[in-house]
Design a binder for these strands. Structure first.
Lengths: 107, 107
DNA sequence: TCCACCTATTCGCATATCCGAATACATCCG
DNA sequence: CGGATGTATTCGGATATGCGAATAGGTGGA
């Protein structure tokens, strides 16, 4: 019930919040939740340039939110923990309710 | 199981993810979860300048994540939905497990 | 080994975000 | 009204973040 320490919140911010702080990374996470994919497959699916996908994957990999497995010349990425999607889905539910509350409250 | 549309993820990012994308805002959210507080009380508790607190509260209020009630000259803020703390706590749990996994896997 | 394929990195730039300081705005009360 | 208290906003500059384009790096087969 008390407020978590500044250090823990700093870590939380750097490791998780900042990682989901970009739309394209969120897209990548959902795409990897559907199934593991290699970089080019992600780039094609999400219509992003390959270097863009690679950079975002680096961000996620550095935070150990995704895991890279090299398979021949390709590198297949997968989610490290599916609960990250739970977090995002909970946020989506919260968003829906918040928007609804805002729509019915104001007018 | 499929990937949410780009529009919804864009909204998710703008309304929720970006809002928790700053350590001080996370601190404020936890402080407000403990109990509603007015701006100056938050500033003193979290050791931030009053304008800083006010700016962050504006960000949260614009996204309808906190609610402002004027009480005389003061403005008392409270969480609009306690599930936002659930989201943050789920992230903290995820963070703990991720750090642990990283610690036992590498060395 | 050389080449083809796939992935990662670098560089320069544009944009966004945050902060401190100062100031403007709002409310209440004498 | 005028001052005291409490809150919001503006301004300028520093920092961070993301992107496109080009390039470097790694892997496996001919």
């Amino acid at each position: 019930m008390s407020i978590p320490g500044t250090d823990e919140l700093q870590l939380l911010h750097e490791q998780i919040c900042q990682a989901v702080g970009d739309v394209k990374r969120i897209q990548i996470l959902y795409a990897l939740h559907e199934q593991p994919r290699h970089v080019s497959a992600l780039a094609e699916l999400l219509e992003m340039p390959q270097p863009t996908v690679s950079r975002h994957l680096t961000v996620l990999r550095e935070r150990a939110l995704v895991i890279a497995d090299r398979q021949g010349p390709a590198v297949v990425y997968r989610l490290a923990d599916p609960r990250l999607i739970d977090v995002l889905n909970l946020m989506r539910q919260l968003l829906r309710d918040t928007l609804e509350r805002r729509a019915t409250a104001l007018p």
